[in-house]
C-alpha cells in the first residue's frame, strides 16, 4: 500500500512530529545550545583571555563547539523510536526508509542544528569576531551542520541497539566529519584573512553537504534494517 500515496502527507506528518518532540519536554533542542554555550565559555579559560588570539581561533572554536553539540545530541535520533516500538511500525509501513531517515534528520536539524546556527553570532561576540567573520562563520555553520547531522545519522543507526552508544557514535563519526570541519573552518577563515578565496572551500562545503544527504540516509537506512532482526 505504498504505491500511490502522495508523499507529502506522511512526510509532513513525520517532520511535524519530530520537530514537536524535539522542542517539547524531554526533547534535546535547547540542551544543544546550552552545551554550545558551555563549550565556548570554557575555551577562554583554557587558552587565556587574549582577545587577538580568540579572534584568530574563533571560527575554529565555534565550529568545534557546533560539531560536538551536534554529535552528542544525535544518540537518541533512532534509539528513542526503537525503545518505544515506533521504529518497528516505521519499518513495516512500506515507506522508503531512506526518505524516513532524511526527514527525521532534517527535522532534527531544524530542532537542534538551526538553534546552534542562530546562537553562533551571539557567541561570536564572546570570541571577539569581526562582523564579517561572524557572518562567514554563521553562513558556513548553516550550510555545514546539516552534513554533520546526516553523517551522524549513520552512527546513530549503527549504535541504535546499544545502551550507551553516545560516545561510540562520536568515535565512529568524527573521522567522517573531518572534511566538513576542514572546509567549514577554511571558508570562515578565508573571509577574515584572505590568502585563499572564500568561495572555493565554501563550495566544497556545499558539495559535502549534498554528498552527505545521499550517503547518510542510504547507509543509515541499511543499518536500521539490519538492526531490526
Amino acid at each position: 500500500m505504498s504505491g500511490p500515496t502522495p508523499a507529502g502527507t506522511w512526510v509532513g506528518a513525520l517532520f511535524a512530529r519530530e520537530l514537536r518532540l524535539s522542542v517539547r519536554v524531554g526533547g534535546g533542542a535547547l540542551i544543544g545550545v546550552l552545551f554550545f554555550l558551555a563549550v565556548i565559555t570554557v575555551i577562554p579559560f583554557g587558552v587565556g583571555p587574549d582577545l587577538n588570539l580568540l579572534a584568530r581561533i574563533g571560527p575554529a572554536v565555534l565550529w568545534i563547539g557546533a560539531l560536538l553539540a551536534t554529535l552528542l545530541g544525535l544518540d537518541r535520533l533512532f534509539q528513542a523510536d526503537r525503545d518505544d516500538g515506533s521504529l518497528d511500525l516505521m519499518l513495516m509501513a512500506g515507506r522508503p526508509l531512506e526518505l524516513v531517515v532524511l526527514v527525521k534528520c532534517l527535522a532534527h536539524w531544524a530542532g537542534t542544528g538551526l538553534p546552534l546556527v542562530i546562537a553562533a553570532p551571539v557567541l561570536a561576540i564572546f570570541l571577539n569576531l569581526e562582523p564579517l567573520a561572524t557572518g562567514a562563520v554563521t553562513l558556513t555553520l548553516a550550510v555545514g551542520t546539516p552534513a554533520l547531522t546526516l553523517i551522524g545519522a549513520i552512527g546513530a543507526a549503527l549504535t541504535v541497539s546499544l545502551r550507551r552508544g553516545g560516545l561510540l557514535l562520536a568515535v565512529l563519526v568524527i573521522p567522517f566529519s573531518i572534511p566538513v570541519l576542514i572546509f567549514g573552518v577554511s571558508a570562515a577563515d578565508a573571509a577574515i584573512t584572505d590568502p585563499t578565496p572564500f568561495l572555493t572551500p565554501f563550495l566544497f562545503l556545499c558539495a559535502l553537504t549534498l554528498v552527505a544527504s545521499v550517503v547518510g540516509p542510504f547507509a543509515a537506512a541499511m543499518a536500521l534494517r539490519f538492526s531490526s532482526d
Binding site: M1, S2, S86, D88, L89, M92, A93, G94
Partner: peptide, 19 residues
Amino acid sequence: ATPGEHCHYSGHLDALKPA
C-alpha cells in the same frame, strides 16, 4: 505490497510518545 504491509502489529511496546 509485502505481506508485512498488510499487517498491523501491536507488540509489547505501545509506540507512543509521552510528550
